[in-house]
Amino acid sequence: MDTKNILDIIKKHNKNKVSLISILEEIQGAYTYLPEKALRLLAKETGCSLTDIYGVATFYKTFSLKPKGKHCVSVCLGTACHVRGAQNIVEEFKRELSISPGETTPDNEITLETVNCLGACALGPTVVSDGQYFPHVSKSSVKEIITRTKGGGRSIAAEADIRIFPLQVSCPLCGKSLMDHDYIINGHPSVKFNVSMNGKKVWLRMSCLYGKHTVELENQLPPNELSRFHCPHCHNEFPSFSTCPECGASMAALFVREKCSWEVCMRQGCQGHILNLDQINLHKKSDKGKNK
């Protein structure tokens, strides 16, 4: 456990015990669970008693005091799934993984959980593995779900498992890295570039976790206004290829491993973003940028 990282999280919330739940969420996001050391540190920093913090951490089901595995499989035991035999599915998972719900396999691969309704009752019995829904699960498909889960899954939703989506981002024009290894957001180096609006220029740091939307600004900019994104190294404006699926504004393209583009909406406050795997198009544009 990295003390500095936890201190950063606590500092970000001004060491304020009012933000206790947000802080706990962030720690859990970074470590998959709440380490005892982190809670003790939190008590010391915020002045909130360890007893109270522990009470909150054990009250909410989202918080876990035990490390979770790399992958999380949740079997629905809600009414609709239950009457379709979800209990048998749980039994099958227990048998295949040799663990009970709430536990993690000894190799730290899979955490098995049961939930009460995933909101997809018509698809029951439903199983969700790292954000991917498996409908009409039968006992015989349990093995396959486990195999696919361990393999990382094929169409895993971006937000589902933050640990598989830290991106390495660089400027599409000068190719220099935009990663700031000294400034951690959500437990990973942040992505840093400059934003300008009406002649005002500030830095922006965002989480490199795809789907996380954690953004920090040097100074507050008016919300819902369009801004422009610049590279901090070559000072050029990032190219734009698409419009935002959320609000229609133009999006700035950043490079991910010199192959794909991560496009981020330039409207302040909008969370629209796309991961574009179409590379050719981008290479052309980037060449143009380099020739400039």
Partner: peptide, 8 residues
């Protein structure tokens, strides 16, 4: 503040 409520 040695003891408190835990769980739910």
């Amino acid at each position: 503040g040695a003891i408190g409520f835990r769980g739910r």
